[in-house]
Write a protein that binds this DNA or RNA. Structure first.
Length: 396
DNA sequence: CGTCCACAGGAATGACGGGCGG
DNA sequence: CCGCCCGTCATTCCTGTGGACG
């Protein structure tokens, strides 16, 4: 054992692939954002009036995941903050990820906290938090930027009340000004909104197009030239990562993850060069980790449902699936959920990409949803192995 | 061309637990 | 400690519907 460990340590220590691994992490904000010059300029243009003490327009930013929306926003606001400090204007930036904080309450609570007020995790009414926020913020003169990242998650879940309140907040403030930057992955997001919110939130709009393969390649090679040591990767590796990510809607985050994990795999294997096969392994690993992690943390009934899906083999109607699920549940001496609830669970699985669900009409023999599992048995096994009873039921 | 199956999926409501102010 | 408000999960009841069959 000691030998093996020594061996491992020496391999890790002698690995010379990464020069600066931090730069490959998804939350790293680089100093240059290639192919986003237009957006940077445009956003800065919109927000710059804050430096002269007037309230900039609210901005709305669209773009599919991994197109640099968050990075550009953070980058520009950081520059503006710096500049504000120089000219002696107090600017505050509240960054809120609405996917993580997807209730009106938590968004407000986060806003409060970012201006320095501790708010109980729960317990107060939402309007009380709102009132506190207004009072606090207006106690002195300042400019606040509220960045609502992935704001579509919030609205889809709880409606646009919070947004409405926020857009109207300026009318209740006498000294402080708030400007809202909304970021969304959903291009049709505006349709969900109340027209009043739409017009005040969308004073300015900014679209981030997806990166194409050559842009991704450029981004990757720039980043890699800092993060990796010299001569540790082939140009073809970068090309492959870019191509794979371009297929996933031009997601730069995905591309960077892919490259980083490829590097890690190469390092783990004791190679001193990243090869194409490492990239392919990395892609499998990313997918596996995602799926396994998601399933592992699911509630029991969802797991049983997945298992039923697996046992059903190649697709089945909700009716068949529900029957199988019920017998499985009863065998475990549990009460089955209603069909209605299961229907929601199926949709959830579909959203997560674990299952495929498609409504099919069979004429007068009804309408149903044909569901099938879209993950490999191997990954399923790994995800369910913690639960003996479920794991044992997996087919060969 | 109307019927009618086998569900989809919306709305309302309830049970429950966490966490606060008082 | 109680009462309040919250979010989450679940149930019940319900209306809607694509298209093969007759």
């Amino acid at each position: 054992m000691t030998d093996q460990l020594d061996n491992l340590f020496s391999r890790v220590l002698s690995a010379k692939i990464f020069a600066n691994r931090e730069m490959m992490r998804p939350d790293y904000i680089p100093n240059d954002l290639p192919h986003r010059e237009d957006q940077i300029l445009r956003l800065a243009e919109i927000l710059a009036p804050s430096l002269k003490g007037s309230r900039p327009s609210n901005v709305f930013i669209y773009g599919v995941p991994g197109t640099g929306k968050t990075a550009v926003t953070k980058y520009v606001l950081k520059k503006i903050e710096d500049e504000g400090r120089k000219v002696g204007i107090s600017l505050e930036v509240a960054y809120i990820n609405c996917k993580h904080d997807d209730t009106n309450y938590r968004v407000l609570a986060d806003l409060c906290e970012s201006v320095g007020e501790r708010i109980p995790f729960t317990g107060l009414s939402t309007s009380e938090v709102f009132r506190r926020f207004v009072n606090l913020v207006d106690s002195s003169e300042r400019m606040i930027f509220a960045i609502l990242d992935e704001v579509d998650a919030l609205v889809k879940k709880t409606g646009d009340k919070a947004l409405y309140d926020l857009t109207r907040i300026n009318q209740r403030l006498s000294r402080t000004r708030i400007s809202i930057v909304g970021i969304t992955n959903d291009l049709k997001f505006m349709e969900y909104l109340d027209p009043r919110v739409r017009s005040s939130l969308g004073e300015e709009e900014l679209v981030f197009p997806p990166y194409d393969a050559s842009e991704l390649e450029d981004i990757l090679s720039r980043r890699a030239s800092f993060a990796f040591n010299r001569n540790t990767f082939e140009a073809s590796v970068i090309k492959l990562c870019a191509a794979l990510a371009a297929k996933e809607h031009g997601d730069a985050r995905r591309a960077l993850d892919l490259l980083r994990i490829s590097g890690e795999i190469a390092e783990r294997n004791g190679n001193n060069k990243v090869m194409e096969e490492h990239v392919r392994m990395a892609q499998k690993e990313i997918e596996k980790d995602r799926v396994v992690e998601v399933i592992r943390t699911m509630p029991l009934h969802s797991k049983i449902l997945i298992l039923s899906l697996h046992l059903l083999g190649k697709g089945g109607s909700t009716g068949e699936l529900y029957d199988l699920y019920c017998t499985l549940v009863k065998n475990m001496c549990l009460e089955p959920l209603t069909q209605r609830r299961v229907s929601d669970l199926i949709n959830e699985l579909d959203m997560l990409g674990i299952a495929n669900a498609k409504v099919v009409s069979k004429g007068r023999y009804g309408r149903t949803k044909v569901v099938s599992l879209s993950i490999s048995t191997k990954n399923l096994k790994e995800a369910l192995q913690e639960d003996q009873r479920l794991g044992a039921l997996i087919k060969k």
